[in-house]
């Protein structure tokens, strides 16, 4: 069409990838070893126990997070997956999602903190994230496939890249959104930046960070299904099978199982961030009780030694 102006950008990228595989192959082998062992371990945790143990664990988690209604829905949902004969696949997917999401969170939250702190990091990271987010998801699979060959690992790597963005963005947003006066208060009393981050910025940005983690998990789930194209296990396998065979029945059953998993994971992780359900309630009631007891003890102590020490300590030096 336009031979004169055709820039061989794709060729350059391919050459670059080739160069990387040739030179740093051992690095990728190492990464592959770590990720695959973690993924295998996680897979073992989810698939080895009988289904009813996992079912009870999910139901209890659901109850703690949101209450009995969600718990009931979870039980029915997972029973449906079981009856559709997708239990094994669903557990494989769950394991993959958790590994991928954990790695993505592990990268994105610190990156978000750095971006909130240093404007330069923010300006560099932003276009990279835009790139990662808008690039068609399938494209990640190609270099991942070349670098890590077929299996769970390229799937996980592609998923991590795809799911990274909301974690970074919402962490940065959350930390930047902490009331600047409150941060100043920390500084004004002589706190170090690390202490301010730990004790003020992270706790106050937590809802936003949890929303980011929730999004990371949801994106991981959608990507993990696509990642089955490069041989990752789980519910993606029957989806791709049904696509190649135009098998509506299998496609629907597998797709529905993904939806059930998605709803479960979304509601569960959202409740941790927004402070709904018993999870928060248990922590808070524990804290408040602790605080009450503590302040009562302090009161008592202050009263008991009031007669002796209080005047001496409270009387200001007379000028």
């Amino acid at each position: 069409m336009n031979d004169f102006l055709r820039i061989p950008l794709g060729q350059w990228v391919e050459n670059g990838i080739d160069f990387i595989t040739d030179t740093f192959g051992f690095v990728f082998d190492f990464i592959k070893l770590i990720i695959s062992s973690v993924a295998d371990g996680m897979n073992f945790v989810f698939t080895s126990p009988p289904f009813w143990i996992m079912l009870i664990i999910f139901a209890v988690l659901a109850f703690v997070a949101r209450g009995w209604l969600f718990s009931l829905g979870t039980t029915l949902g997972f029973l449906l997956i079981l009856s559709l004969d997708q239990w094994e696949n669903a557990m494989d997917t769950m394991a993959l999602v958790l590994v991928a999401a954990a790695i993505a969170v592990f990268i994105s939250v610190p990156l978000g903190i750095l971006a909130a702190k240093y404007r330069t990091v923010s300006t560099i990271v932003k276009p990279v994230l835009d790139f990662l987010q808008t690039m068609p998801a399938f494209v990640y699979l190609i270099p991942a496939l070349i670098l890590f060959r077929i299996g769970d690992v390229p799937g996980i790597v592609a998923t991590v890249l795809f799911a990274l963005a909301p974690g970074v963005r919402l962490t940065e947003l959350g930390i930047r959104g902490v009331d600047s006066e409150v941060v100043e208060a920390g500084q004004a009393f002589g706190s170090s930046p690390g202490r301010i981050l730990r004790q003020i910025q992270l706790p106050l940005a937590l809802p936003s960070i949890m929303a980011g983690i929730n999004q990371v998990i949801m994106l991981s789930l959608s990507m993990v299904v696509i990642a089955s194209m490069v041989g990752a296990g789980g519910l993606g396998q029957p989806v791709i099978q049904s696509l190649s065979r135009a098998d509506v029945a299998l496609g629907f059953e597998a797709g529905l199982s993904v939806v059930i998993l998605a709803i479960f994971l979304d509601r569960l992780t959202a409740s941790f961030g927004s402070g709904k359900g018993y999870f928060r309630f248990i922590i808070e009631s524990f804290n408040v009780r602790g605080r009450r007891a503590e302040s009562a003890a302090v009161d008592a102590a202050a009263n008991s030694d009031a007669a002796t020490t209080e005047p001496a300590e409270l009387t200001p030096p007379v000028r």
Partner: peptide, 16 residues
């Protein structure tokens, strides 16, 4: 030490 216009208390900590 400093007192702020909009109080700038740490909302996740008790008064004490």
């Amino acid at each position: 030490s400093m007192v702020f216009q909009h109080f700038a208390l740490f909302p996740h900590r008790s008064v004490l």
